[in-house]
Amino acid sequence: MAIASFVLQMEPGRGAEAAAALSRVPGLTLEFSGEQNLVAVVERASAELPQVESGLKEVPGVLCVITAYLNIEDELEAAGSC
């Protein structure tokens, strides 16, 4: 599994709408929601992260997604050696 944090830049005033959409993404927790920015932390298999990231861009009101921090805990862990 891997952990990544994303900064989402929002169109002004659509934060709540986006937060509601984001709550349906599995493995995602919303750590911060500001006026124009949201910070989301996602825990998913590393191979799925790119899809998660492109999914985030489809969320209504999101202008831009920045991968802020990535800690790929690698495939070995997913195979149960951890």
């Binding site: 805990e73 690698d74 070995l76 862990e77 050696s81 951890c82």
Partner: peptide, 8 residues
């Protein structure tokens, strides 16, 4: 240390 991954 208890949760460190093998190989990493």
């Amino acid at each position: 240390t208890g949760t460190r991954c093998e190989g990493a």
